[in-house]
Design a protein around this nucleic acid. Structure first.
Lengths: 227, 227, 227, 227
DNA sequence: CATGAATGAGTTTTCATTCAT
DNA sequence: TATGAATGAAAACTCATTCAT
């Protein structure tokens, strides 16, 4: 229940169909977060969304399709909000550190969504690649600025992403309530080649916290359910 | 098919009951690796193990129990073999780098087992902590030797483990055929505070490759495991 | 695709409601022919007819009702055209043979319709009886003319009809490309008592072929029927 | 309920599994006869057989598989019994006439089974071809004996079969309580070329009636359900 | 211990039909 | 009339688990 309703919020001015679709997506977020993708059943998604089970299939072909829609919606929202927040920053290390930290803040500010995102990333390997493009650009910037001394390739990016997702997981577990973002960012920066003091300074520097509020998710991508 | 039958081999001199149990565990390894934990069905495990489905419940309370047994068995075997191989090494960075590299070699030398281990680690979060004790000892040794300049705590260990598992995954995917172990080890050592040249030297230094034929688990038995 | 739109064509000068109804019937013909009565879904009929699914129920109480309307429509059209074509023939055997042959030609000239008719006859047993009245009249004429030497009753008529439908089926299957009409007509005439040579002559005598463009149903309209 | 239990009767001395399988087949016969193949649901078959719905899938992959098993079982039983009854007859017309008449007697002596057979023949077109081989042999014998004056080919056989099935249908409807066999046989013999008096004599000659009792169906073909 | 048939709750999916707009 | 979202009952099928032998 925590932070549900984000899709519905977004859809409140759209048609009835869009609102039902959004209700289903919010329900799916909740259940994917709680039970994981495999364990969540279509019937329960419908039940939580408070629609008949058949209604699910009016909007989505199957569980995969709603999962993709949800994952895409979250990822898009997070990415957009991160983008906005970092528009002015030109220092590669700062950008990288802030992206990690803000991503974790954002995703853990709405735990259901964070968890759903976490599961989704695990499930849809594609998602990783696509999201990673932002990261790749910053890493290459760092190489040009001479502050990154490792080879930038897919393996590095996957490793970097794995570290970030692990930190998100830890924070969502509540095992490291507040600091997971800074801690992992510091480790990442060290790994990339930043001097220890720089890594520490960038990773712990005060930044305004972001909250996952909905404006970023402009539309759930009015995808055609039927075919 | 490749590396099946390790549990059966281990059990070959034990009673009939132990051998049946081992057959089930080998079958489970195969199926967890191929389909994941949720998708593997008890009936199919029994079928692959070539026993009646009811027999499963003579040996395990439920699917969770066999999964735990398998995961524990693999982890223990891997740990034992790693231990043996590193008995003489006293340099902390070398120990740490070698452990990562050998773990990945080992786990990817028997892909079924590697994949099963990978899934299991994901499923049994506990497993991470327990295996991590070996790692913690080496990290603390590194601190005492003055070569590790980050704080050693649970978060660091989880991050370290996540990097390793990610590399294992990449290697199992075949995306990075041979080098995932060295690559991630180098990144880890940099992260911990090793100078870049040291990190590189340790991570890429020639070491004898291990194959997963653990002390009592010597090699793929000519096991029956029907198919 | 071939011969769709006959109902729409017929309805082109009627009101909008009648045209929508006709569109639904044409769509139903297509789907009944392709999938059979049970497998054709109301939603798909509406989709093919390019109307909203709710619109279906404005025009028909349920699936049975549209099936009856379609079957009745086809049967009536076929009967009318047969009637017209045989107005001048007074010899009973010639009438009977020609009716069978022309029915098969007609129904197989528009395969969708033939198949739909075939299914419908199977489904609505009534249809058989009603259509059979034409046949009964000719058979009784044959008795009066002394050329039919079996008892004319419902059983004979059903048997006769079964033979005809079987021939239609064979021809629609493409197993007997052109001759199913003549072949079955010859067998029927023999059965009724015609001397073998007469049966053969009548059944294979040249007759102008009919095509299913019934009096008000002239030809495939450039109908919208989406898909 | 009428004539059920034939498969069970047959299986009564076999193992428990075979008996359950037989119960399911008997239930299927009943429901296919009453509702047709499409309308009969797996759950209801299981309910009538008095087993849990899951049990169905222990024995049959799906509805198609049980339908095939049932159809094959019936057809085999009928064919065997017909064979036995006609072993001594050498006159082609007599064989043909008796086969038709006895087939109808047999199939309508156990109405459920007759109806199920009827549906099955319609559904599994293959069945027609295979059963038709007996018929073809007799027809060719008739040609050699000079009593059949039409060409013997697939079309003739299908027509012949259609007439027989139609007669069975009529008799099962109760519209022609007792005589459908003789009536259709007479028509068939006329069609083939027998002189009217011969056709009549052969078709109405007294013959001992057969009843569908079960010995003929030796085993439900211990087919492997699982795979 | 081992067997394997049987269970039945639970899952996905379809579809005729209704109803507010 | 026409729309199309929503419904919910029912169908096919799966699978962890039990139990009599």
């Amino acid at each position: 229940m925590t932070s549900s309703g984000l899709f519905v919020w977004e859809a409140q001015n759209l048609g009835k169909s869009a609102r039902t679709r959004a209700r289903l997506m919010d329900a799916a977020v909740q259940l994917f977060a709680r039970d994981g993708f495999e364990a969540a059943s279509v019937n329960e998604i419908a039940r939580v969304a408070d629609v008949a089970n058949g209604t699910f299939y009016v909007h989505f072909r199957d569980k995969d399709e709603i999962a993709a829609a949800v994952a895409f919606g979250i990822a898009q929202g997070v990415a957009r909000q991160l983008d906005d927040a970092m528009a002015d920053e030109t220092d590669a290390l700062a950008r990288i550190g802030m992206a990690t930290r803000r991503f974790i803040d954002l995703a853990s500010s709405a735990p259901d969504w964070g968890r759903a995102l976490f599961r989704a990333v695990w499930f849809f390997t594609d998602l990783r690649g696509s999201t990673a493009n932002y990261l790749r650009a910053d890493l290459e910037l760092g190489v040009r600025q001479g502050v990154i001394t490792v080879e930038v390739d897919d393996f590095l990016i996957l490793t970097f992403a794995a570290m970030t997702m692990n930190a998100l997981f830890a924070q969502l577990q509540g095992e490291f309530t507040t600091d997971a973002g800074s801690r992992v960012a510091e480790l990442q920066l060290r790994m990339l080649g930043a001097p220890p003091e720089t890594a520490r300074e960038v990773a712990w520097r005060e930044i305004p916290r972001l909250q996952l509020h909905l404006t970023p998710l402009h539309r759930p991508a009015a995808a055609p359910a039927a075919e």
